[in-house]
Design a protein around this nucleic acid. Structure first.
Lengths: 129, 129, 129, 129
DNA sequence: GTGGTCTAGACCACG
DNA sequence: GTGGTCTAGACCACC
C-alpha cells in the first residue's frame, strides 16, 4: 500500500498519514492483525521525519485503529462496533459541509450520491492487494 | 442570531465564526442582502479579537458567501449554483470520515441518515429569525 | 509553585512535570481556572526543552486536568467526579505494590497509614500559596 | 500458576513478569523454597524472549524475592521484615496516585476500600495451588 | 531491530 | 506571545 503526502497543502502531514492508513483499513488493503511498516521505514519511504510518522501512529493508537506491540511495532487492530460517540462527533463535523452545500444550492440527492460513491469506492477496492 | 465559540478544542476561532455564519445562511436565519454585524460589534459580542472576526469575514468573502462594502460593511450575498469545484472538494474532505465510518462498522444507511437529519435540521429551522 | 525534576532518575521528565502539577492541583496550590505558565516559560524555569513541557501539558489535557485555551495557554480545569474507570485502573496499578508489601510483611494498617498520611499531607497544604 | 502478559500497553514485559511473580508469592501460590520454572521453560510458555525472563528473574533476585542457584535455577526466598526503605519508596510512588484521586474527588474511604479489597484478594487466594 | 525520550532550532497559525 | 508542526540527531529501553 502506497502512502503519498502533499507537502504544500495545509493539512498536517501526520494527519495525511493517519487518514491514508484509515482509508487503507476501510478499503481492505490493510487487514486486522497486519503489521504496519516501522516508523523509520515509513518515514524513509515517504521522505518525512521519523517523529511525524510516530505522531500519526500514536493518534491511530489512541483512536483504536492500531495496536502497538512492544515486540514488533504496530499492527492493525480489530475494531468493535461502538459508534455512539463517533456518530455524535461525525454530526458536528459534517454540519458545516452540509450547510455549505445548501448555500451552494446542491441538491440533497447529489450530496447523498457523493457519500454513496465514496462508500462504493472504498468498499469495492477489494480485499488484500 | 447567536454565535458561540469554543476556546478550547482544536478548531480555530475564525473557522468557528465562519462555519456558524454559513450555517445561519443555510438555515435561513441570515437572508441574502442582510447586513452582518460590524467587525467590532461582533468581536465585542463574542469576546474575541477584532482581527479574528476580520479574518472570518475575509474568508466568507473569498468563498462568495458575503460581499464586503467599504461603506456599509458586510452583506450576505446571493449565491449562484456552481457545484462543480465544490463537489470535488467535498469528496476529498468527506473521504476520511467515510473511511472511519466503515472501519467503525457504521452502516451506510446510518451515515446517510445523519446526513439527512442535518439537511432537515438546517432546512426547517424556518425563515428569518 | 515550584517544579523540580530529577534528571538522573528513570522517570521520564514529562511524567515528573505531569505528576507535580497534579500534586499541585490536589494540594490546592493550583486552583481551577488558574493559568499555568506558558510552555516556553516553564521550560526555561526548569531548564528543560520546550517539547518536553509540551508533552506534559498534552497529557494533562488528555487526562482532563487542564484545558488548553487558544487565547492564553493552559488553564486548570474544573474536574467532575467520575471515578469509575479511574478506580479500575487504580486497582491494577496498586496491586503490585500491595503484593510487595505483603511479601515484605508490612502490616495492612501500616500501608493504610501511609495512604492516610499522604492524603493529610496533600489536603492540608492549604489553599492558594 | 499462570503468567499472562499484555504485549500492547506501556508496561515492559519483564516488569509484568516480575509483578506477577511477586503477586504469586504474596497470594501464597508460590511458597518459600519453591523452584521457579527455568528461564527457557517460562519464556517458551509465555511466548517471549529468554532475555526478557532473565531480566525479570535478575530483578527479583536484586529485590530479594528469589535466590538464584547456578545448579537448580531460581527459588523463592524467605523474606525478612525490613520495611524501612520500602515504606519510603512506597510513599513516593503512591503520592501521584493519591494526588490524582483527590483531583478526581474520590473519597479517602473509597481509596482505602480499594487497598483493603486488594489485601483481601491476595491474602485469601489460599495456600498452595 | 523496534519504539520512546530528550534535545535543539526553525517556521507557521492563531489571537 | 501563544501553542502547533516539522525537522534533525542523539541516546536509551526493550525484545
Amino acid at each position: 500500500m502506497i502512502i503519498e503526502v502533499d507537502f504544500s497543502g495545509d493539512i498536517p502531514i501526520y494527519t495525511q498519514v493517519r487518514d491514508q492508513i484509515v482509508i487503507g483499513i476501510a478499503s481492505g488493503q490493510l487487514l486486522p492483525g497486519e503489521a504496519l511498516p516501522s516508523v523509520r521505514r515509513l518515514a524513509a519511504d515517504i521522505g518525512i521525519n521519523v517523529h511525524t510518522v510516530n505522531k500519526a501512529y500514536a493518534i491511530l493508537r489512541d483512536e483504536g485503529f492500531v495496536k502497538m506491540d512492544r515486540r514488533s511495532g504496530a499492527k492493525i487492530a480489530a475494531m468493535t462496533k461502538e459508534d455512539g460517540p463517533f456518530a455524535e462527533q461525525l454530526k458536528s463535523r459534517l454540519c458545516p459541509y452540509i450547510a455549505e452545500a445548501i448555500c451552494r444550492q446542491m441538491e440533497r440527492e447529489d450530496f447523498q450520491d457523493i457519500v454513496a460513491s465514496l462508500f462504493n469506492q472504498l468498499e469495492n477496492t477489494g480485499g488484500k492487494k
